[in-house]
């Protein structure tokens, strides 16, 4: 029973981080219908940026965190401006392959600068963050993940609900040509969604880096784990991404705990295929009736 509860808590915390990194992915998809295969690399770049600022530049943790977020936002913005904007209106395969190419480029740059080894952050989370309920032990990273996750969910909820840019983004997601005709600067929304997605990715990269250490290959593979998450939640639903993330996180920790660790990595994809066959628009996705 304790083992079960421990897995449950771990699963929810990891799942929340999956959900949040998937949120950035969904944001790009909603705004510009681009499937971003470089999402894992954006995540890794954020983690490495933070690592460099903390260890090499020796900045205080909060300053490094803020600078990382700003830097990632700028990176996302630049990527959209340089690479994605010329492809607006081009066929799907070109856009997909462009992000695949970008992923490869980013990975090369990261391996060049930081190498393929495992790095770790210095210990900066206070021990007081640890939660202890009976025999269930929640390490500080998981608590931090939970706090950051919930914080960002609220912040984004408010951003989309009340700020003008957030409303523009929702309008573009809803109906691009209608938004365009009402004077929404659609291209700016695209750039903004890339910026925010990179920022969110960087944040989840940092949290995952604290949990498992920072390694280029490990972190970029998270970008592919986003796919089962978003398909489960519905490709165009931000709330669905979070819930899908938690479900996939639970699925992973429970298979890892009870069945086998090697099955853990492939099971989300099996679930993915099943969902695609049974309910392709996911749990919360917009159902477009489209006969094939």
């Amino acid at each position: 029973m304790d083992f079960f509860l421990q897995l449950l808590v771990n699963g929810i915390c990891i799942g929340l981080i999956y959900g949040i990194s998937a949120m950035g992915f969904v944001m790009i998809f909603k705004a510009s219908s681009v499937i971003n295969f470089a999402h894992g690399e954006l995540l890794a770049i954020g983690a490495f940026l933070f690592l460099t600022l903390v260890t090499w530049a020796e900045l205080p943790v909060y300053a490094a965190f803020l600078l990382t977020l700003v830097g990632s936002f700028a990176l996302g913005f630049i990527v959209e401006r340089l690479f994605l904007r010329p492809l607006i209106g081009e066929p799907l395969i070109e856009v997909i392959m462009l992000t695949v190419g970008l992923a490869s480029m980013f990975k090369g740059i990261m391996l060049f600068i930081w190498g393929g080894n495992l790095h770790t952050f210095p210990d900066f989370l206070p021990e007081t963050l640890t939660l202890q309920w009976g025999t269930i032990h929640v390490p500080p990273v998981y608590v931090a993940a939970l706090i950051i996750g919930l914080l960002f969910l609220t912040l984004f909820g408010l951003f989309f609900k009340y700020s003008s840019q957030g409303i523009f983004m929702r309008s573009v997601a809803d109906n691009q040509s209608a938004a365009l005709s009402l004077g929404v600067h659609v291209k700016r929304v695209f750039a903004l969604s890339w910026g925010i997605a990179a920022l969110v990715a960087a944040m989840s990269g940092i949290v995952l880096g604290i949990m498992n250490g920072i390694n280029v290959h490990e972190l970029s593979s998270i970008g592919l784990k986003v796919f089962p998450v978003v398909i489960l939640g519905g490709l165009d639903s931000i709330g669905g991404a979070v819930i899908g993330g938690i479900l996939i996180g639970l699925l992973e920790t429970f298979t890892g705990g009870y069945l086998s660790t090697s099955l853990k990595d492939v099971l989300p994809y099996i679930v993915l295929v099943v969902i695609l066959l049974v309910k392709p628009y996911g749990l919360f996705g917009l159902v477009e009736i489209e006969r094939v």
Binding site: M97, L98, V100, G101, L102, A103, S104, M105, F106, K107, G108, I109, M110, L111, F112, G116
Partner: peptide
């Protein structure tokens, strides 16, 4: 790692 980079760049 430049290999990976050049490959992506070509695409």
């Amino acid at each position: 790692p430049i290999r990976e980079f050049v490959f992506g760049l070509a695409i």
